[in-house]
């Protein structure tokens, strides 16, 4: 088997709070390859953003601590690297784009200069050459008249344009891994469609691996090759996009899909709703973290945390029900 480009092994991340250490991410594992898109899907508090920030080791600045686990990038453990070493990787081999394109850009510099900055920092090029690269990159992300746009300031561009600039900035050094944390959440649907399309194109052109963080099952289904569903800091289901969307197994994944208006419910009828609220990290339930909201919960779910179970060809699910055949029939019925 091929060595994965980026591999997260049993990553746990905690935050210091008054109540003690809160685990935002609990033993998450991921393998990413070139030219593929990986999606982390989950609601707020699921730990998806914390996972991505940990890969960049930006979590240190947000008051988080990597408690255990490894993050291998080209066989080197990022967790053991110092911040100084990470600075050399960030924005070069590992790039990241965030939700708010406007706040990711510095308002007092032209967008061209901001993109060129990254080139000069990491690739030892002169100002002139760097600016040329910046314009080339702006062209690649589909900005018309890039020579003109490069000399403009962020406030002169629309939200969609800004997100394109942010993407150009992230990609100008041709990173091997791009982490996109809710890159389209702040954008309108029509612009979102443009940006998702762009990401898909660029992934093929630059042969990079994308780690996309989103709360939108629809977005995940559109762009992902591999999907990991997270809930309250743990992975609950993992598989190819085909496996997860066509044969969702975990009651949470299923619930998420069914909650989407128009997925299965008729107009005006009550929507399927997962009962209860997302638990806070300070008060995580015992056993399976989803059990208080799960309609199929058994005694065992209340007591013991489920172990990952392979349903075949990499479709992993963390649910006790997957272990017994009869249970899986009843889930099938619910489906």
């Amino acid at each position: 088997m091929k060595v994965p480009l980026l591999e997260i092994r049993d990553l746990s991340v905690g935050f210091q709070a008054e109540q003690g250490i809160l685990k935002a991410v609990d033993r998450v594992s991921l393998k990413m390859e070139e030219g593929k898109t990986f999606c982390l899907v989950g609601e707020s508090g699921s730990g998806k953003s914390v996972t991505s920030l940990s890969v960049m080791r930006l979590i240190d600045y947000d008051g988080g601590d990597i408690l255990s686990g490894e993050i291998f990038f080209h066989g080197e453990d990022l967790v053991r690297k110092s911040q100084e070493e990470m600075i050399k990787l960030r924005g070069y081999k590992l790039a990241m784009i965030f939700q708010e394109p406007m706040s990711a850009l510095n308002p007092v510099f032209t967008v061209g200069d901001q993109i060129a900055e990254a080139v000069m920092l990491h690739q030892n090029k002169g100002k002139k050459e760097a600016c040329q690269d910046a314009i080339e990159m702006l062209r690649l992300v589909g900005i018309p008249a890039p020579e003109v746009r490069a000399r403009q300031y962020p406030h002169e561009l629309s939200g969609g344009m800004c997100q394109r600039v942010v993407i150009a900035m992230a990609l100008v050094c041709k990173p091997e891994v791009l982490i996109a944390d809710e890159p389209t959440t702040a954008l309108d649907v029509t612009v979102q469609a443009q940006i998702l399309d762009l990401l898909r194109q660029l992934k093929a052109e630059l042969n990079m691996a994308i780690l996309l963080i989103t709360h939108d099952m629809g977005v995940a289904a559109e762009v992902a090759d591999q999907i990991t569903v997270m809930y309250a800091g743990v992975m609950v289901e993992e598989g190819t996009v085909e496996q997860v969307f066509s044969h969702p197994y975990h009651p949470y994944t299923l619930g998420l899909l069914k909650s989407i208006p128009g997925y299965e419910s008729k107009r005006g009828m009550d929507l399927y709703a997962i009962p209860g609220n997302i638990p806070s990290l300070a008060q995580l339930p015992q056993g399976c973290r989803f059990h208080p909201r799960c309609v199929l919960a058994q005694e065992k779910c209340r007591l013991e945390e489920p172990v990952p179970h392979d349903l075949g060809s990499g479709h992993m699910v963390k649910c006790w029900l997957s272990e017994s055949a009869e249970m899986s029939e009843s889930t099938a019925e619910k489906r």
Binding site: E43, S44, H215, D216, M217, G255, L256, S259, I260, P261, D270, L271, Y272, A273, I274, P275, N277, I278, R293
Partner: peptide
Amino acid sequence: LDVSVQSQIIN
């Protein structure tokens, strides 16, 4: 709102 909560509120 989060998806799972959104459907509760729509209902």
